[in-house]
Amino acid sequence: MTAVSLRRPPSGVHADPLAGRFLGAYLVSLLLHGLLLFGLAGGWLRSAPREDKPPVYYVDLIHKPVLNPQAGRPEPRVAAPVSTPVAPVARVEPKTVLPSKSLPTERKSAKVAAGHVSNALQKLRDEQALQQKFAALRQAQAVPIETPVGLPDARGNEAGVTSLVYVQAFIQQNWALSPYLLADPAKMARTEAWVRITYGKGGRLESFRFEKESRDPQFDESIKRALAKSKQLPSELPVRLEDILVVFNLKALAELRR
């Protein structure tokens, strides 16, 4: 009741104070719900595409870190145009392919008794059928895949990788941890440590600090060793990487060993 009496002065504009109060409460509720919905939807919208990102298939350290790496895979796979002409050739004119592919076999079969010739021919025919099957398979495989193969967040036109990917690959390469070192291998999938690192533009690891330690001292030790080995990147960075969160875990390893 005290709240009602306190609210009365500002809502006194209306003739019916009770209806005004209800309207006010209704508006507040509506607004708050709207905000909540907006916030949730916004968060979801922003996080959704990140989850849908195609997996990174490979990352190499041959490419230098650049500011604007090229996006994905612009052209279709190389295998497609190569294998398509092979298949019709094999199908349309099998006999031209036959001798060129198996000259030594034929020479041998000429030397052996005549009875073996038909055998050899049959063998060759089988081989050819197999080749055709392979070609068909290759063709089926060569259907363009929608998923881009390159870097997920690449937009630019420079040849190279993003600094983050570069640093990730470098640290991972320096991280050596035997599963036999873990205190509890059964908890492998749940072992995780968060480290904030800062790399200067020159590629020097300026600082690192554990934001969340795993419960496994050996796991944390191995990360410290990896970071000690990653003190200096082999290449300069296009930007300074400040307070990057590196999440170390063994999810992929646990998956592998399952």
Binding site: L164, Q172, W175, A176, L177, S178, L245, V247, F248
Partner: peptide, 14 residues
């Protein structure tokens, strides 16, 4: 926030 996940060590032996 800029974030990297490393989900397996580069080498499984020391």
């Amino acid at each position: 926030a800029a974030e990297i996940e490393i989900s397996a060590p580069g080498e499984q032996a020391i």
